[in-house]
Simulated assay, not measured.
Amino acid sequence: MSRAAKLTLFCSSLFAVSTIVFVHYAQKNEKAAMHAGVIRDVEQQKIKKERQLDFEMQRALEEEYRKVQNVRDGRG
């Protein structure tokens, strides 16, 4: 095998291996980023649910207080 053929084979092999390694790490990073997005979405849904429960509790307390206290609307 000539020197040029060996050099071409080496360069082609190096390019192929480096491409495979790059794609592997790119996929691994993309998967990690997507997983982080899912975790962030779950946390946001949890916070939203907690806020909704707080809102409903405040509304129930308001209704209780309205029954007990004499509150007038400021409209009229």
Rank of each mutant, 00 (worst) to 15 (best):
M1I: 01
M1E: 09
M1H: 05
M1A: 10
M1Q: 06
R3F: 12
A4N: 03
A5W: 00
A5Y: 03
K6Y: 08
K6Q: 09
K6F: 11
L7K: 14
L7F: 03
L7D: 13
T8M: 13
L9W: 03
L9Q: 07
C11I: 05
C11W: 09
S12F: 01
S13M: 12
S13T: 12
S13L: 11
S13C: 04
L14D: 01
F15S: 02
F15R: 01
F15V: 00
A16I: 01
V17S: 01
S18Q: 02
T19W: 00
I20S: 02
I20H: 00
V21L: 00
F22C: 02
F22T: 01
F22D: 05
V23W: 01
V23T: 00
H24R: 07
H24E: 07
H24W: 07
Y25P: 03
A26M: 01
A26T: 03
Q27C: 12
Q27I: 06
K28G: 04
K28H: 10
K28R: 06
N29K: 06
E30K: 12
E30H: 10
E30L: 14
K31M: 14
K31L: 11
K31F: 08
K31Y: 08
M34T: 15
H35P: 06
H35K: 15
H35N: 12
A36D: 13
V38D: 15
V38E: 15
I39S: 06
I39N: 12
R40S: 09
D41P: 06
D41M: 05
D41N: 13
D41T: 11
D41V: 05
V42D: 13
E43F: 04
E43D: 09
Q44G: 00
Q44C: 06
K46H: 02
K46Y: 02
I47L: 11
K48S: 09
K48I: 12
K48M: 02
K49C: 05
K49I: 08
K49W: 10
K49A: 13
K49R: 06
R51S: 05
R51H: 11
R51A: 05
Q52G: 00
Q52M: 08
L53S: 10
L53E: 13
D54L: 12
D54S: 05
D54C: 04
D54V: 06
E56Q: 14
M57L: 15
M57G: 06
M57Y: 15
Q58M: 08
R59Q: 11
R59I: 08
L61H: 09
L61W: 04
L61G: 07
E63A: 14
E64I: 10
Y65E: 14
Y65F: 10
Y65L: 15
Y65R: 13
R66C: 07
R66F: 12
R66H: 11
K67F: 07
K67V: 09
Q69N: 13
N70T: 06
V71T: 05
V71D: 04
R72G: 10
R72D: 11
R72P: 08
R72Q: 12
D73R: 15
D73A: 15
D73K: 15
G74H: 14
G74M: 13
R75N: 15
R75E: 15
G76K: 13
